[in-house]
Design a protein around this nucleic acid. Structure first.
Lengths: 225, 225
DNA sequence: CAGTTCTATTACATTTCTGTTACAAATCCA
DNA sequence: TGGATTTGTAACAGAAATGTAATAGAACTG
C-alpha cells in the first residue's frame, strides 16, 4: 500500500468534522480531529502531512493557529483553509497563495480530496530552494536554519539564530531593540529590551571573531556590518 | 541576497488585516499593522517599502494619512489604496500620485500580491533609492539611518541624525527651533530651545565642511542649503 | 548707535543607554 | 523525573548622549 498520510482537521462544527473524517478515511488518509484552535495547537503538528483548518472559529482563529505554526513552531506543513462562502465574498475572492490553499464552504468532498492529493503529490514545501547568507566564512542557511563558520556548525539557540539572521538579512542597517523585539518576540509576550542585549551578548560570544561585526550603537540599536 | 520588504497595512477591519498579514507573510514580506490612521502615523513610515492603505476609516482617513506622509513627512513610499467598490468612482479622479495604485474591495490576494510585486520591482529597477538624500558628497540613508561623507560613515548621535535628516528632507527651508523640538523631541519631554542650538553645533562639528551648509538665521531657525 | 534680543559655543551636570554578570524561571529531553 | 539547555530578569558600573547655564558675540530695532 501507498504511504499513509496523516491529516489534522480543525473545525468547530462537529458534524462537518465527522463527514470529512469518514470520507477521508475511506480514501486511505489517517485523520485526527481538533474542535478548536487551542486543541489543535496541543497536537504534535509535525506529525501531520497536512492541515484542514477552519478560518472562523470561536477563540483562537484559524489564522492565529496558522501563524503560531509558521512562526513559533517554524513548520511549513501545507495548510488548506476552510472558509465560509459569506466571508469570501465580503472580503476577498479567489485567494490562493504560496503553498496554502483555500476552499470555501460549502464544498464537495471530491474537491477536498482532489486538492489534498494535489498538494501532497507536490510534496515539497514552500521555500525549498536553499537560501544562504554569507559573510566571509560565516554562513547562515535560512532554510536549514543552520549557521556555520568555516564549515563548522555553530550551535545557536533559537533566539540567537533569529537575531543573527534578522541582522544579516538587513546587513548594514541599524535595527532598534524595539524593532527586534517586535520581529522576533512578536506581540504575544512582553519582555524587557535588556533581553535583546543579553541575547546579542550570547550570540557574539558564540560566533567568536565575527561577534565584532555585530555593532551596537547607542540610540540606534544593532547592525551587522 | 533576498531583500526583505516591509509593508504596513492600515485598515480598521481587523479580520481583513489578519488575512492580508498571513498571506503576505507567507509570500515573504514583513508586515506591520495599524488599525487607524492615527496609529499608522505613529509608525516610522520611512522604514516601510510600501503601504496598503484603506481609504475609508473612522477618524483620520486614508487620504489624510497619505497627505501627511507626502507633504509633511516628505516621503515618496509607494501607497496602494484599498477602496470599497462604491467609493471607487470618487476616488479615481482624485489623488493619483507617483507610484500609487488603487485596489477595490473585494479583491483577490493574488491580485494584491501581484500589484505589490510590480510596484516593488518598478521601484528597484529605477534605482529609486528615494530613501537616500544626497547633498554633494554627504549622503543620508534614511533606511539604514547612516550618514556618510565621501563614503565614510559619520558617527552621529540619534538626535543629531534626526535633526540633520529633518533639515535635509526640507532642503532650503527654514525650520524654527520650536518646530524642530516638536518634530524631534515630540511631546514627551520639555526642553529648552537652546538645546537645539547645542545639538546643531555638535552636528556641524561632526560633518566638517558641510557644517557650513546648515544655516542659522535670527528669528527663523535653521535651514540646510 | 545704544540697547535689546537672539544665537553660538563652551564647560559641566544629569540622564539615559549599554554590556555584562549572576541568578531564576521555563523548557526540553532522555 | 532530573539534569541540561534555553530564556528572562535584576542589578550595576561604565559609556554615551543629552540638557542646562553661562557667556560672549552677532543680529536686530528704533
Amino acid at each position: 500500500m501507498e504511504e499513509e498520510y496523516k491529516i489534522l482537521i480543525v473545525d468547530d462544527e462537529k458534524d462537518l468534522c465527522e463527514i470529512l473524517q469518514f470520507n477521508l478515511e475511506s480514501e486511505g488518509f489517517v485523520i485526527e480531529i481538533a474542535h478548536s484552535g487551542e486543541e489543535a495547537l496541543k497536537k504534535n503538528i509535525q506529525d501531520f502531512d497536512l492541515l484542514l483548518l477552519d478560518v472562523m472559529m470561536e477563540g483562537v482563529s484559524g489564522y492565529k493557529v496558522a501563524n503560531v505554526i509558521r512562526k513559533e513552531m517554524q513548520l511549513s506543513v501545507p495548510i488548506i483553509f476552510l472558509t465560509a462562502k459569506v466571508e469570501e465574498n465580503d472580503v476577498l475572492t479567489g485567494f490562493n497563495v504560496g503553498g496554502d490553499d483555500y476552499i470555501s464552504k460549502p464544498f464537495s468532498i471530491k474537491e477536498v480530496v482532489a486538492r489534498i492529493k494535489a498538494i501532497l503529490k507536490r510534496g515539497s514545501r514552500v521555500g525549498n530552494d536553499s537560501n544562504v547568507i554569507s559573510f566571509k566564512e560565516l554562513k547562515i542557511d535560512l532554510r536549514k536554519k543552520i549557521t556555520t563558520i568555516e564549515g563548522e556548525p555553530v550551535n545557536l539557540t533559537r533566539k540567537e539564530y533569529e537575531i543573527l539572521s534578522l541582522l544579516a538579512k538587513n546587513m548594514g542597517q541599524y535595527i532598534s531593540r524595539d524593532e527586534i523585539l517586535k520581529r522576533i518576540w512578536q506581540d504575544d509576550v512582553i519582555v524587557t529590551e535588556r533581553n535583546v542585549d543579553v541575547n546579542i551578548a550570547r550570540l557574539r560570544k558564540k560566533i567568536g571573531e565575527y561577534g565584532a561585526y555585530i555593532k551596537g550603537k547607542s540610540g540606534y540599536g544593532y547592525c551587522f556590518q
